[in-house]
């Protein structure tokens, strides 16, 4: 193949980008738009959660513990238990939300949590209606 001068000069066209606005976002001043349906942290509507432990059964990482609730918020919650998720094990596959009979367990778009101790990553889903 013949090497042409054109092929050496054409890459210089990238220089035109110098005059363009950067494509990157200046985090944390500017954040990217949140997407509805993103698989982020868990939320659990305690007024509808029935404490059935379906989420615990389906979780292949054994990340979900059923723990006693402080104050009953749903009279139909027969066990008095609600899920808590070990974020050291969770893989955000959202199978737990798929099998939730009252659809109380959901994933929200919030997804940032920094901590210096890995053992603190036991997450109590926020009580939010979905």
């Amino acid at each position: 193949m013949k090497f042409e001068l054109k092929n050496s000069l054409a890459p210089l066209s990238a220089l035109s980008k110098i005059f363009e606005h950067p494509q990157t976002l200046c985090y944390p001043e500017v954040k990217s738009e949140t997407v509805s349906g993103y698989r982020g942290f868990h939320i659990n509507d305690l007024s509808t959660c029935i404490g059935c432990a379906n989420c615990q059964d389906v979780c292949m990482n054994e990340a979900i513990d059923m723990i006693a609730i402080d104050k009953d918020k749903n009279p139909k919650n027969n066990s008095g238990c609600i899920p808590r998720i070990d974020y050291g094990r969770c893989c955000w596959c959202s199978l737990c939300t798929d099998v939730c009979p009252p659809d109380s367990l959901k994933l929200e778009s919030e997804c940032i949590w920094a901590d210096d101790d890995a053992n603190r990553f036991l997450y109590q889903p926020k009580d939010k209606p979905c």
């Binding site: 404490g51 059923m66 006693a68 066990s79």
Partner: peptide, 9 residues
């Protein structure tokens, strides 16, 4: 503190 849900019911 994980509880067995069937026991709790």
């Amino acid at each position: 503190d994980n509880l067995d849900v069937k026991e709790e019911i």
